[in-house]
Design a protein around this nucleic acid. Structure first.
Lengths: 163, 163
DNA sequence: TTATTATGGATATTACAGGTCTGTAATTAA
DNA sequence: TTAATTACAGACCTGTAATATCCATAATAA
């Protein structure tokens, strides 16, 4: 139950792109060095982001990556779903087990979402939890973090002159 | 980014125990058949639950498992953390990268929780999201689901006479 | 004591995250 | 046009964790 490193890389890469938006674009080499990860691997991740319309890539000399849309329109949820996939975090392994016969008996199939077969009550709770998570992740964007960083730098530097 | 099958098994097993609480305890054999999983594997999971004080186990003839505390005191979060572990879902891989030097500059180490080194802003967002998830999971217990099942059975049967 | 039941260790198997390498395509500078 | 640069796609490798089985052992009740 952990987010993959790829998600970590993706988020940090986007943060970097969002930060240096005045420069046209950033090459994979610079990104890789900044994040401390190999170019080969990072390029895989960037490709995914490109295929999903999060970044734009220009090949050739002086090419590189740039955000495909404003930083405040790229939510954490977007990024995570591109990298981790869109399958739900919990799926009941056997909705047909005796367990469900007992509990749901003949589970009133007008239920919530008319999923395949009778719905699992455990899955329902887990689904609700996931929605909570998604809601929060959707409310936070790349821009959110950039703003936070700027704020911190200002309030941090004005009397934090440690020399 | 998926919950393991073990978590699925654990939750369903506890649900079963909570349901047949009037009977003293339930053997691994019955549990395994009910859930449609092998005894060997399920017993590993039950052991974890026992070590964490979620269930009690009695060996010997007519032995088995029973809930170690009332079903409304066993939260989904409890169960998940026993099975999946208590590590946080997201950890920034390199807090010392150039990335963080740029963004956090010298990240004001009176920060939120005084974690090791300067705190990562990405991690901070992810941590917030995880808290949302935990909050929800903590509000739902084994009893919650049992109640839901009973409610559904009642309202489902009174005019759902499909024959 | 004996049958029963859970426990723990060892071991296999599989899937996947993480990562490297190579050749190809696209673009720009010369 | 050519050459250098850069992203792209695919094949491939590797270690680790999830899933699962089997067996020997300990504990308990009849």
């Amino acid at each position: 139950m952990q987010f993959s490193k790829s998600t970590d890389y993706a988020l940090h890469a986007l943060l970097h792109l969002g930060n240096s938006e005045r420069h046209n674009n950033v090459g994979i080499k610079e990104l890789a060095v900044t994040l401390g990860v190999s170019e080969s691997y990072l390029s895989k991740i960037m490709s995914k982001l490109r295929q999903d319309g999060i970044v734009r890539a220009v090949p050739g000399v002086n090419g590189g990556y740039e955000l495909a849309k404003p930083a405040d329109q790229i939510t954490f949820l977007d990024v995570i779903q591109v990298i981790e996939g869109r399958q739900q975090m919990f799926e009941c392994s056997n909705t047909n087990s005796q367990q469900h016969q007992l509990l749901a008996d003949e589970g009133t199939d007008q239920g919530h979402q008319a999923r395949r077969g009778s719905e699992c009550l455990v899955e329902k709770v887990m689904y609700g939890a996931e929605q909570q998570l998604h809601q929060y992740l959707q409310a936070h964007t790349i821009q959110t973090v950039i703003d936070e960083a700027l704020k911190r730098n200002c309030s941090g530097n004005h009397d934090k002159n440690k020399k």
